[in-house]
Amino acid sequence: MNPIDKKYRYAKTGKLLIEIVPDKCDFCGCCVGVCPEDAIELKEAEIFIIDSRCTNCAKCVWSCPIEVIKFNKDGVII
C-alpha cells in the first residue's frame, strides 16, 4: 500500500501513537487510573482510547502490567 493511502487515527496532539491490543487485555484498569485526560473507556470486557482526548503521553503504556498497550511511533492506522 502506498503510504499516502494510509489513514491514521488522530489524537489531540496529532497522530495517535498509542494502541491497545484488546485480545490480550485483562481489563484491569491500570491505564484508566493513570490517564490524566480521562481518555480511556473501560467496560466489562471492552476497552478503547477516546482519540480526541489522548495526548500521546504514554503513561498508560508504562503502567500496563502485561504489555497490552503499545507505543507505535509511526502512528495508529485505522
Binding site: 484491569c28 484508566v32 487510573g33 493513570v34
Partner: peptide, 16 residues
C-alpha cells in the same frame, strides 16, 4: 476502584 472516573466527572482530580 483503581480505574475510577466517577470522581473526575465531579471535578475532583482522581487520576494517579
Amino acid at each position: 476502584g483503581v480505574e475510577s472516573r466517577v470522581g473526575r466527572w465531579a471535578g475532583i482530580k482522581t487520576y494517579i
